[in-house]
């Protein structure tokens, strides 16, 4: 009898409280994220499993592929640079050829001058030698 009355009282209390309150789904989700963040801050981020790491790296590679895509320079820039390079290349060729000619000329001139110098020295020596042989004996 006593048990029955207690059960009845409980049923009555439950009836008075009404239907069971369900928490909002967004609230549960955000609370879960906050708790996870707090746990990460407190205990440090757990080391991901190998499989999870591979999945994350694959995602990263996919993002890299979509981000680092080839870009095209302006065609006007490409054309203008090509034109300028051609002109500069031509000028450089001419300059290099001229430099070669000047070097050759300098080399030839240098050789001729040094040969002339040797020749002049020889002539001078010969002339001095002749003068010495013509000196009278009494001078000694």
């Amino acid at each position: 009898m006593r048990e029955e009355s207690m059960e009845g009282a409980a049923m009555e209390a439950a009836r008075l409280l009404g239907p069971r309150a369900e928490p909002d789904a967004d609230f549960v989700q955000s609370l879960g994220q906050s708790i996870q963040r707090a746990a990460y801050q407190h205990f440090g981020r757990p080391r991901p499993s190998f499989d999870l790491m591979v999945i994350e790296l694959r995602k990263l590679v996919r993002l890299l592929r979509r981000t680092l895509v080839p870009v095209h320079p302006r065609s006007a820039f490409v054309r203008a640079l090509e034109h300028d390079l051609q002109e500069t290349a031509h000028d450089l060729m001419v300059m290099r050829q001229e430099r070669v000619w000047w070097l050759l000329l300098g080399g030839v001139l240098g050789t001729v001058l040094s040969l002339l110098g040797v020749l002049a020295a020889l002539l001078l020596r010969r002339k001095n030698g002749r003068l010495q042989t013509k000196k009278p004996l009494g001078v000694r």
Binding site: V71, E82, Q86, A89, H90
Partner: peptide, 19 residues
């Protein structure tokens, strides 16, 4: 020695270098 040949190298690589 040939500007035209350099031009071809330029055409081949300009986009790569630009990127």
């Amino acid at each position: 020695e040939d500007p035209e040949a350099f031009g071809q190298l330029y055409t081949r690589y300009v986009e790569k270098i630009y990127n």
